[in-house]
Design a binder for these strands. Structure first.
Lengths: 224, 224
DNA sequence: GTCTATAGCATGATAGAC
DNA sequence: GTCTATCATGCTATAGAC
């Protein structure tokens, strides 16, 4: 339930050599290149050659930083997790009432998803890849827990500490929001019919607000 | 909104030669073999050789029936769509009240998902593959529309005809259920924590019943 | 730290006997 | 309709100069 601050078995061998200024930059370029190539073509056509080309480095350079394609892909997923928080904070107005925050948060998420369609596809593909990769399943879990933790905090505070009860309720809310957004992403991709999917967003907003209502009154009637 | 009875551009070249009794059987074996191999290893490691081995045929035989790996994979996805209806009807008790049907249906779906974890992963991977494959996006749409149509009918009837209003409400319900189930699948896979995911199922049941309530009263107050 | 060059191999697909 | 044998290609990864 709370394996978010996991021991986190370090990614097997992401080399990260001397860590020169230049080295760090190149490593980042390769990760960005991999994400670009993944967004444009999908996992099926993703090769180390395309990644290297997309990053503007030679194939051997790629292997200097990542000893295998697998570890590079896992590093890309890690990077996506790290970037997530920044992305949402941008265009979100922040009401003080948690119920309105839920609504603002879902709408913000959905705007972000729609303007980064291919990135979402890429992230979904990478998550499935991690689930299929022996010893990398924890990465998928970490990704989800990071999202859950992030949404949970955003529902109740700017980013401060939470009471135990807020954490419990917020986690349930966050989980449900995430379920809805993931389902919406897939359905929107498959039907590429934004009109109908927007109905789904409205329904999700209402359902999540109702859930908060329910959890709060349950907590009020039967505290501890 | 209703491109379910699509012209359906025929799958480019699934050959299907003379269609001998034996030929049809072999074709089916290859499709089953592909699904098996996909379930056990994922798209990343899925090769025509593994498929052939898993189907008990030689590599050349596979290419006699499917002129390319791509068309084989799309045929597998088609097959999954066709099998879907059978799978759910099995263990579902069928109350007469639509609200209770929604609950029974969601629980039945969830049971099915849990006992076919790898099949669901495979189907998700194939759907993403179709979305990435030029000219195959319609297959993903067909898959979703088939599910939506199926759930819609199940909410209101055994399988008979629907009134226009039932169809409209049922479609919205079905879409939302599907959003929830897809999201639940991904979250359950990533966190592999069935206890917490079951909470999500309960929440989805309540939310979907509420949605039906809302749609019905809206229709009652403002018909046509 | 980045490159050129290449090893070593697995892949999707085909030719042609039976 | 199914097989054996093989092709051509593209893959990941490495060796070694600079």
């Amino acid at each position: 339930m709370d394996d978010n601050d996991q021991p986190a078995p370090p990614l097997p061998s992401t080399r990260t050599p001397g860590a020169t200024r230049k080295g760090v930059e190149t490593r980042a370029r390769i990760i960005r290149g991999a994400l670009e190539a993944l967004e444009s073509g999908g996992m099926e056509t993703l090769t180390t050659r395309k990644i290297a080309a997309s990053a503007g480095v030679k194939l051997a350079t790629l292997h200097y930083y990542f000893d295998s394609k697998e570890n590079l892909l896992l590093a890309v997923l890690e990077d996506l997790i790290a970037d997530m928080a920044e992305a949402y904070r941008q265009d979100m107005s922040m009401p003080s009432d948690p119920e309105e925050r839920i609504e603002a948060l879902i709408r913000s998420m959905w705007r972000y998803v729609q303007r980064t369609r291919n990135k979402q596809l890429a992230q979904t593909e990478l998550t499935l890849y991690a689930l299929r990769t022996q010893g990398a399943e924890w990465l998928a879990a970490r990704q989800y827990n990071a999202y859950i933790d992030f949404y949970c905090r955003l529902v109740f505070h700017g980013m401060g500490e939470l009471t135990e009860e807020q954490r419990k309720i917020g986690t349930a809310i966050a989980r449900f929001m995430l379920i809805g957004i993931d389902g919406l992403i897939l359905q929107n991709f498959a039907l590429h019919n934004n009109g109908d999917t927007n109905e789904g967003v409205e329904t999700l907003v209402i359902a999540t607000r109702d859930l908060l209502h329910r959890l709060r009154s349950e907590a009020g009637i039967q505290p501890g």
